[in-house]
Design a binder for these strands. Structure first.
Lengths: 326, 326
DNA sequence: ATATCAACCGCAAACGTTTGCAATGCAGTT
DNA sequence: AACTGCATTGCAAACGTTTGCGGTTGATAT
């Protein structure tokens, strides 16, 4: 690979390296003639600054790390898409890494971020992450870490989450409003704080209303389908799904049994918004917007970077999107 | 941000920078005592090499660029997920960028890749990309560009695509086998080579069998739904969808009209494999695997990097996955 | 003729690594 | 005693930038 460098431009133009450098960044010290000459030469030779050299010299990477459990997950992708957009607008780059739910890979990814001297890190931890020391160490050396979605259960770190209690509350209330009598509620990984909170909020409200509730935790879509198959015979009149994955499993089960929605059984879910629109009637869902989360996380990052010592603990507000499934 | 550098380690240990450097990379010249001393010191101080300095010095970035039209697209995400995995295994990093179908942003992204001195680029171009010069320029300076999925229509560049003709052929033949008489076929963006090829293959086979065929091009899911709404009254007995997006639109239309699948109307689609499983019966589809594409693209990259001058023009084989929709 | 000033430009150091080469010390050989 | 050879370590240059500071012009004012 043969690249043009400032030195090469300097040799060709007969100007010094510093003059070439300044000319390219429109420094007032440099005359217009020189600037023109240099910029033309640079574009002739397709000059692009070596970003490694720039970062080394300026001691600034203008780079954020993003670590997510999985890249083949629609929710994280919407978060990443919005982070990427914000980053671009602010002249930052992103190094995007997936931990595939493996704490070792997660650790390696953190290492990579350190090596890259990222200015900050957006992270969603794996269910198996027991030791968040490596993250905290980043924070110690003034590299802000903004946790999102799957966050550690402690108060001394930045957290941006989709609504936990709120969204479960909305769902539970909607179920009560519709005078449902027997609920099948399928939650996600019980290790997550968000699951615990939603479970707690959801069941306590149903309890207040004296509504019967079968609860279960699903590890994935297939498991959710199995759970649905097991419990549908007990004739719940509504099923609540905590995630898109669970919804997909549940829908397969109901469709197979030719249950009419919402007449035979009502469905309500918490979702990113994509899956619910695939069905007819569209599934009523409480929206957890990855885009909004991304934007908010980015804002938090920028604000901490600009000196704020405030600990961000934000929640994406829940919006009920009415479909025809309840 | 206060970081440990080789210099700092050297000062503390009383050894020279070069010795510290060599000790850390287990160079045979260094005695075991020294190695132990240095590695312990390094881990005490959380030393991580500054990757910018390393890259600058070694003139190698071990970095690949990835440019996709959109990060909130399941297909590309499966490609990216598999690229990321391969990259990690081979000690490469990825810089992932989205062009949001804007040629200007795409150009800016290419620039970023150049600035980062990527070792290679994986790219899927926007529908509006008329000038692929910037890509070719990369290739000129020995930065391999592997186009995937949406590729330029010229023979002098590496291309990895999902099957175009093949997948359409399989679909058409399956339709013929099932003695369907009237097909509604909805294709994607007519600007893409892949669309043209599939259209051509699909319609010509139907023509051979003397099967009536209504064809249309959809720009997105909503548009596909509209098209379906327009043409379903003409009572086609099977609908062919070229993409997942189109399938989603079509399914909404059929569900709304309470058409039974496959009795009232059969459905067949080309898909990544996720959407078809959401419905009941599962939709029969011709699989276009993003994972396989990613792996194959990565292989091509490695082989060109290791000196092969062969122009890769590969196709991910099509696999028919039978559901119950036809 | 000299001083002043602005406009323009170059020197050189620094960022944190890697690495060819030279230097050092020391044991064993002759 | 001088030499060889080996094991260990250090020197210094280079990668491609940025930037503080100082230098060189030429014009204008005194």
């Amino acid at each position: 690979m043969i690249t043009t460098t400032l030195k090469k431009l300097s040799e060709i133009s007969g100007l010094s390296i510093s003059t070439v450098s300044r000319a390219l960044k429109n420094h007032p010290d440099i005359s217009e003639k020189t600037k023109l000459l240099v910029t033309e030469l640079a574009s002739m030779l397709d000059y692009e600054p070596n970003i490694n050299a720039v970062h080394l010299r300026t001691r600034d990477s203008r780079l954020f790390g993003v670590i997510v459990p999985s890249l083949s997950n629609c929710f994280y992708n919407s978060v990443i898409a919005s982070l990427e957009e914000e980053a671009r607008k602010n002249d930052y780059s992103l190094i995007i890494l997936q931990s595939v739910d493996d704490p070792d890979i997660e650790a390696a990814n953190i290492k990579l971020c350190r090596q890259n001297r990222v200015n900050g890190l957006f992270a969603s931890i794996t269910p198996e992450t027991i030791n968040i020391e490596p993250f905290l160490k980043l924070a110690e050396i003034d590299i802000p870490v903004i946790f999102f979605d799957r966050v550690p259960d402690r108060s001394d770190c930045h957290k941006i989450c989709v609504a936990d209690i709120d969204s479960a509350t909305i769902a539970a209330n909607l179920i009560a409003e519709n005078s449902k009598k027997k609920v099948l509620a399928i939650f996600g990984n019980s290790k997550f704080l968000i699951t615990k909170k939603r479970y707690q909020a959801f069941t306590s409200i149903l309890h207040q209303y004296n509504i019967e509730c079968i609860t279960a935790y699903a590890t994935d879509g297939t498991h959710a389908r199995q759970i649905a198959n097991d419990y549908l015979p007990e004739k719940p009149d509504v099923v609540f799904c905590m995630t898109d994955e669970i919804l997909a499993g549940v829908m397969r089960a109901t469709q197979k049994r030719k249950l009419k929605i919402p007449d035979d059984i009502a469905v309500i879910t918490i979702s990113n918004g994509f899956l619910p629109t695939l069905y007819y009637p569209q599934i009523t869902y409480i929206e957890t917007s990855g885009e909004k989360l991304g934007k908010l996380a980015f804002e938090s990052m920028m604000s901490t970077l600009s000196g704020s010592t405030f600990i961000h603990d934000k929640i994406i507000e829940s919006v009920l999107v009415r479909g025809g499934s309840i």
